[in-house]
Design a binder for these strands. Structure first.
Lengths: 117, 117
DNA sequence: GTAATTGGTAACTATATGGTTACCAGTAAC
DNA sequence: GTTACTGGTAACCATATAGTTACCAATTAC
């Protein structure tokens, strides 16, 4: 299983913070400026700016400057990758252990013996 | 959207490390001892022990001591929760933006105005 | 009983994270 | 051209993370 994936590291790390998940939830309702995103939170603007940088590095959010305003939008690709990784365990958590073993053992191209990057 | 969820924090943080993802991938093939898990990696046993503690705190792995051997097994619940959270964005990454907006705006019980714990 | 094995803990280090305040650059408004 | 606003950067702090080596406890094997 391709477990060494810098992109996946960044994505999951970005999702591990409640403020960042709230930002993503907000962006799911539509694009927003940095100010819009910061308003509901008790944290300072620089803190939000840092969170946005984390989300950008993880390619979960795209930021474009329009004049003096920054517009933020969801970016789908990274979240899809994260979902796909987790999805591999669906058989397990649904109790279909045999399915999972078969998946893991019969998909050599999606696995690697070198498990660290 | 319920974005403040300590359990999700722990789960996504646990998934953000390639060694831990490799451990989970190994456990998907069946239970294993700590030694089994440590063998493929270049890192020391204590490092693996720490990773396992992170995975346990996130409830992704269960550890049971049998004599002097520790047996580790996947635990499904936490990964399912993570998948469910990400799943909400499926409509977005599939380009069905209207669906997502409708979902986000019409599910008041699954959202909260206080976005931090 | 002694020795070997498993694996956990302690103590330490280096780096990353999340937050702050203070400040600056650029744009928009008047 | 000032003034006000948006938002990014710098410098700093506290805490968490990922790793190390050294050591210990308990179980198993001889």
């Amino acid at each position: 299983m391709v477990t060494s994936n810098r992109r996946l590291d960044l994505t999951f790390a970005a999702l591990a913070d409640p403020t960042r998940r709230a930002i993503l939830a907000r962006l799911a309702r539509g694009d927003a400026t940095v100010g819009d995103l910061a308003r509901p939170f008790r944290v300072s603007r620089p803190a939000i700016s840092k969170h946005l940088r984390v989300l950008e590095r993880a390619r979960l959010v795209r930021r474009t400057r329009e004049g003096r305003v920054s517009r933020c939008a969801l970016d789908a690709a990274a979240m899809r990758s994260a979902a796909e990784w987790i999805e591999r365990y669906r058989a397990f958590w649904m109790g279909r252990l045999d399915d999972l073993k078969r998946y893991v053992e019969q998909s050599p191209t999606t696995h690697t013996t070198k498990e660290r990057s």
